[in-house]
Amino acid sequence: MAEPYWPEDRSEVELEMLRRQLHEAVGHDPARLSDDSVLPLSRRLDALILEVQKRKMRTSSTMSGPRSVGD
């Protein structure tokens, strides 16, 4: 049995919510991606994806930062 998914922060919760809303708004018609009602949702999702990725990159770079000679 798979373990439940627990997002690390509110951004990831919002990301998943927006992703679902976008899927519902577009349905099976990719042409709807350029619909006026879908574009703001798509743009917000894009911005949030970048925000989460940048945060993860900063976190991973600080966790694997410079090490002392004795490490």
Rank of each mutant, 00 (worst) to 15 (best):
E16Y: 11
D35S: 13
E24H: 11
L41T: 03
V69N: 04
A47V: 02
S11P: 10
E8V: 02
E51S: 09
L18S: 02
S34W: 10
R19P: 01
A2S: 15
R44F: 02
M57A: 13
D35N: 10
L39I: 15
V52C: 06
R19S: 09
L33N: 09
P66Y: 03
K54H: 12
R10F: 12
K54R: 13
V26S: 03
T59Y: 07
S64L: 12
M57L: 13
L22R: 10
A25Q: 12
M1Q: 13
R44S: 07
L39C: 09
P30K: 03
P40C: 06
G70L: 14
E14M: 11
L22D: 02
P40H: 08
S68N: 06
P4I: 00
G65S: 05
S37I: 05
A2H: 15
H28S: 12
E14F: 09
I49F: 03
R55P: 03
R20L: 10
V38N: 11
E24M: 09
H23F: 07
E24F: 05
S42C: 14
R32I: 05
A25C: 07
T59L: 10
A2F: 10
R20Y: 09
L15H: 15
A47D: 07
L45H: 10
T62E: 06
Q21W: 13
R67M: 09
H28M: 06
E14H: 13
D9L: 00
V69H: 08
E3N: 15
T59G: 02
L50Q: 13
Q53M: 06
M17A: 15
L48S: 04
R55Q: 14
R10V: 12
L41G: 02
D71N: 05
S34G: 06
M1N: 14
I49A: 04
R55K: 07
S61P: 00
